[in-house]
Design a binder for these strands. Structure first.
Lengths: 126, 126
DNA sequence: CCTTGTTTTTAGAATTATTCTAATTATAAT
DNA sequence: ATTATAATTAGAATAATTCTAAAAACAAGG
């Protein structure tokens, strides 16, 4: 793995931040001022292919990148805030229903985050 | 609901096709030759807000729109083919783990579709 | 069925996100 | 060193989506 690839992998893997390609680019640029966007996109793509990171497609914002360690996501329906949560692994359950062959799954649970819930209760939001 | 909005909703709601905004636009254009892309984007957005359809963000392709009736998705890891599947509802399970407050969830199960599996077995693909 | 106010649609520009191309540079393998 | 392979760069190109301001459609009240 090249220097850039390694740092990009580390940035994604050691962060809770669910960064976009742009944010990763800006972060990497702090240490490697010469790096260019395409490099970051290229590396993110190959890291995904190799299964070292994963891409999250989130409605209404650019793709985000995430570590692999098994976990699920909570998404606020109203403000889009994204956070990690780990539910019990349900691969077994799903395989019982569809048969073998699951590679992995992606579970997003939509809710109202504490901030938005509060606002809603105060009647600030519909 | 306006004429356009209604047709757009029907197109999405009565189809298994998981169409992109572009595809919906082309489809609608067959009956309504004057309609314009922005109208379709606008209506898709407001239909989503009203909870009448849902947007699916799929890695590597533009957003797709889907009916609301509860169901999950199978996605081929290799070719991206998307199909519907209905697993048992697991809202109860999830609430047991995180408490009340789930609005809905989005589950994508990644696997190898029959075509890709066959290719892989024949050694055509890595 | 006119007038007025609100919403929707339109055309096209603008923005954003991402990929592509071809040249250059770095890395690894003989 | 020499050559082959892969990564990086700059910048153009493409794709997807949103924005803007004006025009058209619609809805409600008189």
């Amino acid at each position: 793995m090249t220097r850039y690839a390694k740092r990009i992998w580390e940035l994604v893997d050691h962060s809770e931040a669910h960064m976009t390609a742009e944010q990763i680019f800006l972060e990497l640029k702090k240490e490697e001022p010469k790096v260019v966007q395409a490099t970051v996109y290229n590396n993110l793509n190959t890291l995904c292919q190799k299964g070292l990171i994963r891409k999250l497609s989130i409605e209404g914002s650019p793709d985000r990148y995430d570590k692999i360690r098994r976990h699920d996501h909570l998404v606020c329906k109203r403000c889009g805030a994204l956070s990690d949560i780990t539910f019990e692994d349900m691969t077994g359950d799903l395989e019982r229903q569809m048969g073998e062959g699951i590679l992995f799954y992606d579970l997003k649970v939509f809710y109202l985050c504490p901030k938005c819930r509060e606002k809603k209760e105060k009647g600030v939001l519909p």
